[in-house]
């Protein structure tokens, strides 16, 4: 194992170490997005978004389809220009070709030139960079050495994904943008890709990735940015985000104001319906369901129909991003009772 401790240093052992350039001292953010707005006709894809990513961070971007994640990545990659605000890649404009030396991007898996062989595509992309990873090393790293002579048109979806992610790393970029890197992969292939992304990150690389899979973000990211309808809804460490969303749901009927119980961070109270014994229905969200139930029992209030369920991350994020514009705080979905609860 040690004989082939690859990392992305495999090729560099023989090359002179390159010092970080003048333009890029460590305190310059790798990615900086300042008050960026981007419209497509009537649609506002990004509305005054700001985001700063420092060297070595691994940031996961979550959000539903059409939230603006891909638009944000295309701005950082220099493929589009913002209508307002500024985007910087290691201090430079990503629309300048030379700035993009620090950038690695994945092609869409369907977009590989079908007649070129795997090693040719790697070679082609790699030669755009001053210090590329050796093709054989890179393919070995991703476990696709045996595909080197195959035309990309004959690869399976999983093989193409691996090649796509490999291509983003061939130029030893400071930052890679991974847009849905493992969509449609089986578990094994996904684990292998995650391992490669972790290795790159362990070597000091910066990663900005989007995913539909919370599991993926939870697995990889240290910091999570939630985007919805062109706005950053949350930007925090993974733990903080998890604490915020990893809640249990307690459903119970009672006439007492249960939403004031300690530990309830969010609640929804629906008025009694006929046949429910004049008891209101409460949906209470809490990080600690056991404590809440204990509290409920010892408080001596009358209640019935107790149900407890862990709210999945998936649901939690859905709720987080499902706030109708302008109605913040009115309904239980985001209205917090933190003040009254503590």
């Amino acid at each position: 194992m040690t004989a082939r401790a690859i990392g992305f240093g495999a090729g560099l052992g023989t090359e002179p170490q390159v010092q970080p350039g003048r333009g890029a001292p460590d305190d310059v953010p790798v990615v900086s997005v300042e008050s960026v707005t981007k419209r497509f006709g009537e649609v506002v894809a990004l509305d005054d978004v700001s985001l700063t990513v420092g060297a070595g961070e691994l940031v996961g971007m979550l959000g539903p389809n059409g939230a603006g994640k891909s638009t944000l990545l295309s701005l950082v990659g220099g493929q589009r220009r913002p209508d307002a605000g500024a985007v910087r890649l290691v201090g430079a404009d990503p629309r300048d070709a030379s700035a993009r030396v620090s950038l690695g991007v994945t092609p869409q898996e369907t977009g590989l030139p079908p007649t070129l062989k795997v090693r040719e595509v790697v070679e082609f992309v790699g030669r755009h960079y001053p210090h590329r990873v050796d093709t054989a090393d890179l393919l070995g790293e991703f476990g696709i050495s045996d595909l080197a002579r195959r035309q990309t048109g004959s690869l399976s979806g999983g093989q193409r994904r691996r090649l796509a992610v490999a291509l983003s790393l061939v130029g030893r970029p400071r930052v890679v943008l991974l847009d849905e890197p493992t969509t449609g992969l089986d578990v094994g292939a996904r684990q292998a890709l995650w391992a490669a992304i972790r290795r790159y990150h362990a070597d000091g690389g910066t990663v900005l990735l989007t995913s539909h899979y919370l599991e993926e973000v939870q697995e990889l990211a240290e910091r999570v940015v939630v985007i919805d309808r062109g706005v950053v809804r949350a930007d925090d460490s993974l733990d903080a985000i998890l604490a915020r969303v990893a809640l249990h749901r307690v459903v119970v009927r009672s006439s007492a104001p249960l939403d004031a119980l300690p530990g309830v961070v969010r609640s929804e109270r629906s008025p009694a319906t006929t046949g429910s014994g004049r008891l209101d229905r409460f949906e209470l969200y809490t990080p600690d369901a056991d404590a809440l139930v204990r509290e409920l029992v010892t408080s001596g209030v009358t209640f019935s129909g107790l149900e407890i369920r862990g709210a999945s991350l998936e649901e939690a994020f859905e709720e987080m991003v499902a706030v109708p514009d302008g109605s913040d705080g009115t309904s239980g979905t985001s209205g917090t009772n933190e003040g009254s609860a503590r």
Binding site: M1, R4, A5, I6, G7, F8, G9, A10, L12, G13, Q17, V18, Q19, P20, G21, R22, G23, A24, V28, V30, A55, V90, G91, A92, D96, S98, A99, R100, V101, S102, R127, H128, Y129, P130, H131, G140, E141, F142, G143, R172, P173, R174, V175, A192, A195, A196, R198, R199, Y200, A202, D203, G204, G205, T206
Partner: peptide, 25 residues
């Protein structure tokens, strides 16, 4: 098996420079 290697040697191989200082093709 390399794919399973937890993490490579932490040689500073990433980010060799901001654009201009590196010799671009």
């Amino acid at each position: 098996p390399t794919a399973a290697t937890p993490s490579g040697t932490p040689t500073t191989t990433v980010g060799d420079a901001g654009g201009e200082s590196a010799a671009l093709p």
